[in-house]
Design a protein around this nucleic acid. Structure first.
Length: 239
DNA sequence: AAGGGGGGCAACCGCAAACTG
DNA sequence: ACAGTTTGCGGTTGCCCCCCT
C-alpha cells in the first residue's frame, strides 16, 4: 500500500486545463485572492484538487508572468546561479523577475544542461533529467560500455532543502530587524548578506552551503546580480 | 507520405517544511 | 509538545508537435 493521495481523486478532472476552468480560477482569485488552495476548488466550482489549482495559477495564469523569450542575460544568470545553488529552482526563479521555477527548471533541462555539457564546463551539479519514455527511446542506442561509463560518473547531490516563503521573497529576513528600514535599503543587502550569513544550520542546509562558498565566487555573483538588475531595469532593456 | 525520434512544456507525484489547533 | 493539515518544492511523466529520414 502506498501513501494516501493528497486529495480525493474520484471525480476530479486531471490533465490539461480548459479555458472554462482557467476562467473560473481567475475569476475566483480576482475576487477572493490567492491562498486556501484546499478549499478553493470547491468554492470556485472547479473539479480539480487544490494543488492543481495552485500550480495552474502560479505557473500559467498569474498576470505578472513573463513567458518564453528567455534573454541571453537571463540565460547566463540561470547558468551561474545554478552552478552556485544547484537545483534550487525556486531560489533561482526568485532572482529572475516574473519567471516561474517550473519554466526555469524546464528551460534548464531542455536547453542549458545540454549547452553546458556541450561546452564541457567542469562541475555541472546535475545531469539532465530524462523521462522514462525518453530513456526507453535512447536506451537501445547505448552500448553497455557507455552505460558503465555513465554509472561511474554519476553525481550525487545533497538533498534539496525547503526555503521558507519569507526567505524566498527576501533574504533580508535573515538579517536582524535593526538593519532594515531607514538607514539601509533592503536591495543593498541581498547577495552580500546571503554570503556573509552564518546561521545555526545543519549539513544539508542551504545557508550552510552558501556560507561555504569562497568569497571570490561570492563577490563575482554579487557583481553579476548587480549588473543584471541594472540591465533588467534600464530603459534600454525595457524598450 | 509516413512514421520514428526528439524537443518543449504543462501537469502530476511524493516528500517534507511550515502552519494550526 | 505534538499530531494533523496545508503548502511549497524538485523530480518526473506523458502528450503534442515538428523535423528528419
Amino acid at each position: 500500500m502506498g501513501r494516501a493521495p493528497c486529495c480525493a481523486k474520484v471525480g476530479l478532472h486531471r490533465g490539461p486545463w480548459t479555458a472554462k476552468e482557467d476562467a473560473l480560477l481567475i475569476q475566483y482569485i480576482h475576487s477572493h485572492g490567492e491562498g486556501n488552495w484546499k478549499a478553493l476548488p470547491k468554492e470556485a466550482g472547479l473539479l480539480r484538487c487544490g494543488k492543481s489549482c495552485r500550480l495552474r495559477w502560479l505557473n500559467y495564469l498569474r498576470p505578472d508572468i513573463k513567458r518564453g523569450n528567455i534573454t541571453p542575460e537571463e540565460d547566463d544568470l540561470i547558468i551561474r546561479l545554478h552552478s552556485l545553488l544547484g537545483n534550487r529552482w525556486s531560489l533561482i526563479a526568485g532572482r529572475l523577475p516574473n519567471r516561474t521555477d517550473n519554466e526555469i527548471k524546464n528551460y534548464w533541462n531542455c536547453h542549458l544542461s545540454k549547452k553546458i555539457q556541450k561546452e564541457a564546463l567542469p562541475n555541472p551539479k546535475t545531469k539532465p533529467i530524462e523521462s522514462k519514455d525518453k530513456k526507453k527511446k535512447k536506451k537501445n542506442k547505448k552500448t553497455k560500455k557507455m552505460e558503465k561509463a555513465e554509472e561511474t560518473t554519476k553525481i550525487h547531490l545533497p538533498k534539496p532543502v525547503r526555503i521558507s516563503s519569507s526567505f524566498k521573497y527576501g533574504f533580508e529576513s535573515l538579517i536582524e530587524p535593526g538593519r532594515m528600514g531607514g538607514e539601509c535599503d533592503a536591495s543593498d543587502l541581498l547577495w552580500s548578506d546571503i554570503m556573509n550569513f552564518n546561521g545555526v544550520v545543519d549539513d544539508h542546509d542551504l545557508v550552510f552551503q552558501m556560507s561555504s562558498i569562497d568569497s571570490l565566487e561570492a563577490n563575482m555573483l554579487e557583481k553579476l546580480y548587480d549588473e543584471y538588475s541594472r540591465l533588467l531595469f534600464s530603459e534600454d532593456y525595457n524598450q
